[in-house]
Design a binder for these strands. Sequence first.
DNA 1: TAGTGGTCTAGACCACCCG
DNA 2: GGGTGGTCTAGACCACTAT
Lengths: 234, 234
Amino acid sequence: MTRTPETKSYRDIKQVVVDRIQNGIWQPDSLLPSETDLAVEFSSTRTTVNRALRELADEGFLDRKRKAGTRILNAPVRKARFSIPLVRDEVAGTGAEYRYSLVKRQVQAAPSWLASRLDLAHGQDVLHIRCMHYADNAPFQLEVRWIVIDVVPEVLNEDFVQSGPNDWLVRKVPFTNLELSFTATKADTETAEFLDAAPGDPVFTTERITWLRGAPVTYARLYFAPGYRMTTYI
Amino acid sequence: MTRTPETKSYRDIKQVVVDRIQNGIWQPDSLLPSETDLAVEFSSTRTTVNRALRELADEGFLDRKRKAGTRILNAPVRKARFSIPLVRDEVAGTGAEYRYSLVKRQVQAAPSWLASRLDLAHGQDVLHIRCMHYADNAPFQLEVRWIVIDVVPEVLNEDFVQSGPNDWLVRKVPFTNLELSFTATKADTETAEFLDAAPGDPVFTTERITWLRGAPVTYARLYFAPGYRMTTYI
DNA sequence: TAGTGGTCTAGACCACCCG
DNA sequence: GGGTGGTCTAGACCACTAT
């Protein structure tokens, strides 16, 4: 079949479907026509309709089940995409100049809370690191990290004086699994000093655990200077 | 062509590609073979290879450009998907019982900071709402919200005594755009009381602005009770 | 068991953009 | 200019599951 003026691309189809949902032509919880029917309506093929609906389901608009059909989700559990930048890039993105400084680097036995969290053997060695990231010489982020030496033994060759462990890990151990959480914590005395904050001040905190093929690589806590705001657009 | 034992599905292909990246067989910044070549290697078709690579690019592993080819990203700007649940569902998901309570509902002229933020006319009317969400009768979230009446005049018919504005908005007003940000704030006296916290305690705070086809619908601040943690897996 | 979505094929045309 | 990815077609078989 040749493409007629009425022929819709998968992008057009997505747009039409979203419009119909937003204008109430198709109600939440109701069933869409089958892919075959929609293909006829849009002068398209099932393959193309399939791609459109598949992406909308992926974005959280639709729920699709074989035999049951495609249903409009009533509670739009919209899914937001956000990217996880390197601190360096995040700072550079604001136009500020990035500076890194190592505070502490020490091999130690994993504290028991960490061993428990990462499922390490009792007393297993980890490399503990504290470092600071600055934006135009103002404190931006305090990084506190533990790296499991058995999983990445080469880490012992790095002194992390010139650049941070995150840069190194990203280069050496790419593409792993990640657990990411966000909380608001209270600055203790030391954190407050590094971040140029008052003790007790609220601090936006990120916690990351990274695995490489099932093995825990590193645990990190990132304390952001007061005023930090993480923003996403959907 | 019939499917041989060597024939790979798009999932298999994704897995192989990720494995090769993780094992350093394909280095960051380097170019992958073309889709056509990969199709031959995997005893598959270009369509299938295309889907695999397209999804990996979408997940942040690869960068694809016509003519330039497919390149492995060295700075893994991994993209995380997180969903934005209704409070009700979030509470229910923890197994706790959800309870809602209206604190305040009032039509007022938009305060100037809000008018500025949402680009409203000076003195434009908004519906101001404060309400609480409880989990097993413990404070879970304090919601402070402003709704632009001109955009959704039907909101005046709702008293929001039985259920919150979020439930209503989600059902009635599909949003098209969303700005979402996260910060750590300091509890003021009133917030602290509602959240059963001490004044000055750190509070994880979410700010949401929602638009419907370019028109600002609502601005909301969500203050979470101490101990709240937002978690994602990637 | 019948109908729906999930996936694959083989081929085609096209848009983009690097060299 | 030519090679790469972007997309579409027409058809097929299959997997799942509601009924």
